[in-house]
């Protein structure tokens, strides 16, 4: 589109939007994003941490990263470190039972207890991370990687959980014979550990 055409287009849109504005669409609603208050039982990330402005990223991730997650800023991250900090008592109790089942080698039972916890708090990234661990125990490597990635996605920058998840991903990739993928995951692990050590 040439410059004149663009101007015409912009003008036309302007008209439409002005008219739309007169017809009281929801301009204010848009400028204030939906209340990010999570629903009950959902995970509440520490305020003001994610995402970082690009200018403050201290170390760029290696170029071929499959998961473009921003590394945190260098000072001690104030994310919840354990499930009990963000979960209701029912979920904490189920996660404890699952940990016992897992320790006893009862993987199916552990998975079902975690799935029950997931139904109560569907976006609790600690629960998903623990489930990824069970899948790793069960040598279901694809599932371990997918579920750990999902946990990473929900964790919204919580490095403590991400560390666990990358460990699971690295181990699963290694077991699958994907040594390059495992190395990349290990790079994320090293990176996060440096962050945590630096704090």
């Amino acid at each position: 589109m040439n410059r004149a055409g663009k101007a015409k287009v912009i003008g036309a849109i302007g008209m439409i939007l002005v008219l739309a504005g007169c017809a009281s669409t929801t301009g204010t609603r848009e400028s204030s994003m939906p209340d990010p208050r999570p629903p009950i039982g959902a995970v509440i990330p520490a305020p003001g941490t994610p995402p970082q402005p690009p200018g403050q990223v201290p170390v760029l991730p290696p170029p071929a990263m499959p998961m473009p997650i921003e590394p945190p800023e260098p000072q001690a991250p104030s994310f919840p470190r354990s499930a009990s900090e963000i979960s209701g008592q029912a979920v904490v109790s189920l996660m404890q039972s699952a940990a016992q089942s897992r320790a006893a080698g009862r993987h199916d039972l552990a998975a079902s207890q975690l799935e029950r916890a997931q139904r109560i708090e569907p976006r609790n990234y600690f629960v998903w991370s623990a489930l990824a661990g069970v899948y790793l125990d069960q040598r279901q490597f694809d599932q371990a990687i997918s579920v750990a990635s999902k946990s990473n996605s929900l964790a919204r920058g919580n490095v403590y959980v991400e560390l666990e998840n990358w460990k699971i991903i690295s181990a699963a990739r290694l077991a699958q014979g994907d040594s390059l993928g495992a190395l990349q995951a290990q790079a994320r692990i090293d990176e996060i550990q440096r962050q945590l050590g630096g704090g």
Binding site: P36, P38, P39, P51, P54, I69, G157
Partner: peptide, 15 residues
């Protein structure tokens, strides 16, 4: 339940 719409790390909001 309403969506929380917390943007993932590789999303930025821009006025």
């Amino acid at each position: 339940r309403g969506l929380d719409m917390l943007p993932p790390a590789d999303i930025q909001d821009q006025l």
